Amino acid sequence: MALGQKHEMLTSPNLFYCFVDFGKSLADQPKTWVVPSEIVAKSLREMHQDWLNTPGAKGQQRNDNALRRFMPEYRPLATYAMGWLDPYFENWSSLETASKESGHK
């Protein structure tokens, strides 16, 4: 999933991202990960910084840009191994919790 540089800093207790996998065919049930903005911002910063610090295919320094990739697996960092998003799968209750904590009904 491609996001912008601004998403590294865009956080709020009431801001969540819903990443939806629609599957490969119309028969597939959509799957949704409900991820707090703080988690998205932190992962974007860490994954992008690691990418910048890793030499390119020819050993060259990578050029920074505004593009950020949010990935379900980023192997160079153990924190983002396959399954790191599992706690956010269909995590709709986090929206209700955030709403109650902010005083919304």
Results as ranks from 00 to 15, higher is better:
Trp92Ile: 08
Ser94Arg: 12
Gln61Leu: 01
Met1Asp: 12
Gln60Ser: 01
Lys6Gly: 03
Gln61Cys: 00
Lys24Met: 11
Gly59Tyr: 04
Thr54Lys: 00
Glu73Tyr: 02
Pro55Asn: 04
Glu101Ser: 14
Ala41Phe: 01
Glu38Lys: 10
Pro30His: 14
Gln29Thr: 11
Leu10Met: 08
Trp84Ala: 00
His104Phe: 12
Glu101Cys: 12
Val40Gly: 11
Trp92Gln: 05
Ser12His: 14
Asp64Met: 03
Gly59Thr: 04
Ala41Gln: 07
Trp84Gln: 02
Thr79Tyr: 06
Lys24Phe: 07
Arg69Asp: 07
Leu67Val: 13
Gln5Gly: 00
Asn53Glu: 06
Val20Gln: 11
Ser93Asp: 13
Val35His: 15
Lys105Ala: 13
Ser99Lys: 11
Val34Tyr: 12
Leu95Gly: 10
Trp51Tyr: 15
Arg45Met: 09
His48Phe: 11
Asp50Pro: 00
Lys105Ser: 13
Thr79Leu: 15
Thr54Glu: 02
Leu3Ser: 13
Ser99Val: 10
Val20Pro: 11
Thr11Phe: 05
Gly103Pro: 04
Val35Pro: 09
Ala66Asp: 09
Leu95Trp: 03
Gly56Trp: 00
Thr11Gly: 06
Pro72Thr: 14
Pro36Ser: 15
Lys58Tyr: 11
Ala98Cys: 03
Pro55Phe: 05
Tyr17Gly: 06
Thr32Val: 12
Ala81Gln: 09
